[in-house]
Design a protein around this nucleic acid. Structure first.
Length: 492
RNA sequence: GGCCCGGUGGUCAAGUGGUUAAGACACGGCCCUUUCAAGGCUGUAACACGGGUUCGACUCCCGUCCGGGUCACCA
């Protein structure tokens, strides 16, 4: 077998969909696993809906996911161009061949005529299918129609009573009957080929060996096979992967939550987590381990272990995986990812100072094991900023009414003021010393202090919390809390 | 509706005629931790239904039901 070549061929009509990302991923994994090449081709024959902006978005999303391609519109390659609208002259050759051989023909039917035919079919209880009435137009008839100003399309002659077999790598053999397929359009009236035609010519001329794509394309495949046969060109291998479903088992759409890759990026998911999750949606590793890097996944990947049944997008599992990657993330990178959120939230200036960055680093350290997405960091910020404390509940208030509370908090403030360098280690030592010095139990120090500082019973480690708050804010918060509890502490 | 593809716990998903039917997420419990989270241990929970074939079916065949895809001058 020659070198394996696979492709991802999105149409640039919107941002990269999560399902598209999975198709791209499976192609990528297959290429890497087999030492083949991963090609990116832009299917922009729908002039109305295609845009460069979408194309750029798709490329950016793929790059973000780490799915680098070997050939594509931006980097070129030996089989270019990689945008269908730039390959029109290539398609033309093949169209003419089909026309000359009588395997395709011009059709002048108007939309109204087609719709009328369709309704008639439906009325008779038949499957709507093009009648093929333009198949045998004489040159005179054609001229007459053209003089009327009609713009023809080119239709493919679908042979009757043919069994079309698709050997599918994930589904096994799938058989279709050509009688269920009407003569379909291969060139639109604007002269641009349709998907079904362009995809065949491109996959052939780009020497694609394996077409791995979503299942929604399965019922298009017999049309494509017919074209391959009419052209007498090599048919690639096919592998149709099942769709991603929303929680209600219908095709994933907006109402199921985020559907585009950029949305996940914006919410603070790590690309490794998204890729890992997507790989697990439809493919399964041999062992029990499920957390893999892209490279590790590629090493193990095989089409034989791709499931046939559609998969529901399990947001909970994605969130869990993202948490795993966040916890394993080196601090500097996590801080870097958190920075934009903090700037947007107004916690850090657009030109961060050294102090701000040091503070951020501390915040990220304190929160690393609590975050599910990087964006979640904003929700924790009230904990670390501002002088106000809202005592949130009776239980909390009770803790402040202990006799030991006032002396403890007073001593704490004194010791804190005396501290030369405020950092988690120093605070930890301080708290230990404080407990010992006052002869208190941990219970009488840690929890009351936490509540006095944050109003809440839960939260990050106190040594980090206090280091992040700083001396002044800590003391301000303590005195306000004391007031709420009806106590007075001297600010030192 | 025609054609096509599916149907193992709530979700993902191993399984390829004989298994105590893995594992992961989620959920419950316990441990750890003077908090939460994380982590460790543990528990609840599944072969859509009905017929065959077979000594034996989750696994093979047929039917039913359910879900999805597709029937465009969109890809």
């Amino acid at each position: 077998m020659g070198k394996i070549r696979v492709r991802f061929a999105p149409s640039p009509t919107g941002p990269l969909h999560i399902g598209g990302a999975r198709s791209a991923l499976f192609n990528y994994l297959y290429a890497k696993n087999t030492g083949g090449r991963f090609i990116l081709r832009i299917e922009d024959t729908d002039l109305e809906r295609s845009s460069r902006e979408s194309e750029e978005n798709i490329l950016a999303s793929l790059k973000w996911l780490g799915l680098e391609w070997d050939e594509g519109p931006d980097i070129g390659g030996d089989y270019g161009p990689y945008r269908q609208t730039e390959r029109l002259d290539i398609y033309k050759k093949y169209i003419e061949r089909l026309l000359a051989e009588g395997k395709a023909y011009y059709c002048y039917c108007s939309e109204e005529e087609l719709e009328f035919e369709r309704q008639e079919c439906l009325g008779r209880g038949e499957v709507p299918k093009y009648s093929g009435k333009c198949r045998n137009l004489t040159p005179e008839e054609r001229k007459k129609l053209e003089d009327e100003g009609r713009k023809p399309v080119v239709r493919f002659c679908v042979p009757s009573n043919r069994e079309i077999l698709i050997p599918d790598k994930v589904r096994g053999d799938v058989v279709f009957d050509s009688d269920g397929i009407g003569d379909f359009v291969i060139v639109k009236s604007d002269g641009i080929p349709t998907y079904n035609f362009a995809v065949v010519v491109d996959d052939f001329t780009m020497e694609i060996t394996h077409v791995i794509r979503a299942e929604e394309h399965l019922s298009n495949t017999p049309r494509q096979i017919l074209i391959y046969e009419a052209l007498g060109i090599t048919i690639p291998e096919f592998a149709h992967i099942s769709l991603i479903l929303g929680s209600d088992r219908s095709k994933m759409s907006k109402r199921h939550g985020a559907t585009s890759v950029v949305q996940y990026k914006e919410e603070g998911y790590l690309p490794e987590a998204v890729v890992n999750f997507l790989a697990l949606l439809g493919w399964s590793p041999v062992g029990e381990e499920e957390v893999f890097s892209l490279e590790e996944t590629a090493e193990q990947f095989s089409l034989a272990r791709v499931a046939k049944n559609p998969a529901v997008f399990d947001m909970d599992k994605l969130r869990w995986l993202n948490g795993v990657y966040i916890r394993n993330c080196p601090l500097p990178r996590l801080a870097e990812m958190a920075l934009p959120y903090m700037q947007k939230g107004g916690y850090i200036s657009s030109e961060p100072t050294q102090d701000e960055l040091a503070w951020l680093s501390l915040v990220v350290t304190a929160l690393q094991e609590k975050l599910t997405t990087v964006g979640d960091i904003i929700g924790f910020m009230p904990l670390f900023t501002g002088d106000d404390v809202v005592i949130d509940g009776e239980e909390q208030l009770e803790l402040l009414k202990e006799d030991t509370f006032l002396p403890m908090i007073t001593a704490f403030c004194e010791n804190l003021s005396a501290l030369e360098d405020l950092n988690p280690v120093a605070v930890k030592t301080l708290l230990k010393g404080l407990t010992k010095e006052l002869g208190l139990k941990g219970k009488q120090v840690y929890m009351p202090l936490r509540v006095a500082l944050t109003g809440q019973k839960h939260g990050p480690e106190l040594d980090y919390l206090i280091s992040i708050l700083g001396k002044e804010t800590s003391k301000k918060r303590l005195s306000r809390t004391a007031e709420q509890a009806g106590l007075k502490i001297p600010l030192t």
